[in-house]
Every structure is written in C-alpha cells, then in structure tokens.
Design a protein around this nucleic acid. Structure first.
Lengths: 194, 194
DNA sequence: GCTTCTTAGCTAATGGTAGTAGCCAAATGG
DNA sequence: CCATTTGGCTACTACCATTAGCTAAGAAGC
C-alpha cells in the first residue's frame, strides 16, 4: 500500500478545516483520521496529541487571522482602517469558527511561540491605532478595549448569542462607530481612578 | 447503606462548583460523582446526561449572574450604574469561570427556558441603559455593544489572554469609561450606512 | 408496626475516546 | 542493490459517558 504522504502541517491544516465544519469540540482523532484517509494511530506520527493538534490549529489560525487583518488594513488609516480591521476580524471569525475557538483557548504556561504569535497579532492592531491622538499609555488600553469588543461581538455572534439575526450588521457598525468616535476624542483622564 | 439525599439541583450546584475549580472542560461525571460521594451511574438518576448537566449549570449561572447584576445596580443610574454593572459582571466571571463558560455555550435550538433566561439577563442591561438619551432603535445596538465588550474583556481576562496582568484594572476602567462617554453623546447617524 | 411501592444507589457491561507498543513495508540514501 | 529510517498498520490499554438490571432505603397506606 502506498503511503499517504502526510506531514505535521497537512494534518494540522486538515484538522483546522474539519474543526470549522463540525466545531472544535467535535473534532476527534478518529474523525480526522477518517477524513485524511488513514487510521487514527497514524496521526500520532505527525502530532503528539490532541492537545498539540489544538495548539497547531491555534497557531495556524492566528497566523491566518493576522494575515487577513494586515491585508485588510494595508494602506488605510484612521477610522477607515479601524472599520476595515473590524470587518475583516468579524468575517474571519464567522468563516472559521473552529480555528477561532482554538485560538481563543489559553496557551500553555510557558509556550513562547504561541505567546509571540499572539503578540504579533496585537501589533497589527497597534499599528492601526497609531494614527489616533491617544494620550500616554492609552494605546494598550485602547487596544484591549477594541480587541475585547471585537472578540466579544464575534464570539457571541458565532455562538448564535444574538437572538434575532436581523440588524446584527447594524449593531456591528454601531459598535465600531462607537469605538472610532471615542478614539478620536481621547481624554487624558480616561481609565483614571473612579 | 444510607442514601446520599441528592436532587437534580444539588447535583447541578455541585457540578457548577466543580466546574469553577477544574474548568468546565475537565468536568466529568466520574469526578463529579467522586466529589459528591457517589458512583458515576447514580448521577443519571438526577441528570439526563453530561450535556444536560452543562445546561443546568448554564441556567443556574445565568440566574446567579442576573441576580448579582441586579443587586449591583439597584438604585443607581446613568454612568454610575453602568460602572457598577460592568464591575459586577467582570467580578462574577472571574469568580465563576466554569459557570460562565457554561453560560456562553449556545443553547440548543428550541430551548425556550434557556432563551428566556438569557432574555431576562438582557433586561437588566436595558434597564441600566434606559437613563441614556439614545436615539430610536439604538438601545438594542448599545446593549449588544456593551455586552460584547464586557463578555470579550471578561472572557479574555479569564482565559489569561492579556499577557501582563498589570494595568488590567486600568484597561477595564478605560473600556467602561469609553462606553459610558459614548452612551452620553449618542448621535443619530451612529450605526448608519458606511 | 407491618406491608407495599417507589426509587436512589449499586455492580456489570457496552461502545467510543485518546494514546501506546510493536510490526512491517515503503521510501530514502549510500 | 542493500541498509536505514520511518509512516502506516493491528492490537491493546485505560478512561469516558451511558445503559441494564438488581437491591435495599425510604415513603405511603393500612
């Protein structure tokens, strides 16, 4: 019998695609093996464990998301860039729910590569925010605010959390408009003591 | 041998507590049974399945969270109420990560009780926002924006998503300040066509 | 108090899961 | 062409959720 010609990256990629289809929680070694056309134990020649498969999907997902965000915001500035960033983020999450679920899982305690990957993703956002007149030290808070809002919206939407589907587009524009407005009118006391 | 005196509610409550300790993903019937002092199959006299245990934990969590939010905002208005709401939300999530993870899972397709429970939680938020001068139809968008931002922040923080722990409190104040500011200065075109 | 009925907890077993051990043939490199 | 490496396999273990069927604890009626 001929070999399947697998490699760690192909297994992870197939896992990512399958996770998007059936949901990360329903991704099993058994199912992935059937999809690839191989018996389950064979997968362990390419990935250490199910957990390491999750990690691989997360790393691939973070890379892909970062590329999508970079592409979407290339050559844009200010509010336009933020809108483009937000739209690309939301679209990517909706199109890749399994990958996204993997990226959201907390990385292992001392996983340097994973940490660095997350950091690089943040840099894209920081670059987008660089155009705004933020006060000292506010960039990190603005980044976290934007990231929280986008992550929250996208994951709630992806999980079907917004009862009625209607007007969700408009809600998203409202959210992004809101944040852009605030970024343009930063005040030095924002985030200060209550 | 004497009976353990269990009931569905006590099993769910123990499951919720255990989920907070070990993480929802590590909650197993085996572990829960040991915790309660009973053999695994006995649990099935009180809960239908692991999935229905998740659902029970989610329902209990939503009720508890709603109560905490109602308590925190009682008698408060405007920005103060929003800050109190946000602080209570964040605190509850940090203190009950397992319960919260359960509440976030999408409810089954036609689970009326679960849907109603989520809706009642939203009403607390709508009440808090009732003080603000929002334009027609903006209340639903503002609700979703606030909910997204809080859910996003809390779940990222709960998952250890903000690299350095320092300044996270300040980031949260920044986020809430930001949203309160915007709520107080709503514009009719917000959320309109790009 | 005694009997009857219901049912909570048990043991035993099933099928599915992740993962390991060890074999063998396919590819690789001299 | 031979030696080595290695990818996929079968067979197995341990653990998971879950079911079947038994037994005794407790409640209900008399």
């Amino acid at each position: 019998m001929p070999r399947a010609g697998l490699a760690p990256a192909t297994v992870v990629a197939a896992g990512a695609a399958l996770a998007d289809e059936v949901g990360l929680a329903h991704l099993t070694m058994n199912l992935l093996a059937r999809r690839i056309g191989v018996r389950p134990p064979s997968l362990y020649k390419h990935v250490e464990s199910l957990q390491s498969l999750y990690r691989g999907i997360a790393l691939q997902g973070k890379r892909e998301l970062r590329e999508a965000l970079t592409r979407a915001t290339a050559g844009q500035t200010g509010g336009t860039a933020v809108h483009a960033f937000a739209a690309a983020y939301r679209r990517w999450v909706l199109e890749h729910p399994g990958r996204y679920a993997a990226t959201v899982r907390a990385p292992a305690a001392h996983d340097e590569e994973d940490r660095r990957s997350s950091e690089e993703g943040l840099r894209v956002l920081l670059d987008v925010l660089a155009d705004f007149p933020l006060h000292d030290g506010h960039a990190i808070h603005a980044t976290r605010t934007l990231r929280s809002a986008l992550h929250g919206f996208a994951s709630l939407e992806s999980a079907g959390g917004f009862g009625l589907a209607e007007d969700v587009d408009r809600s998203f524009r409202f959210l992004v408009d809101t944040l852009v407005t605030v970024l343009q009118t930063d005040r030095p006391d924002r985030g200060g003591p209550a």
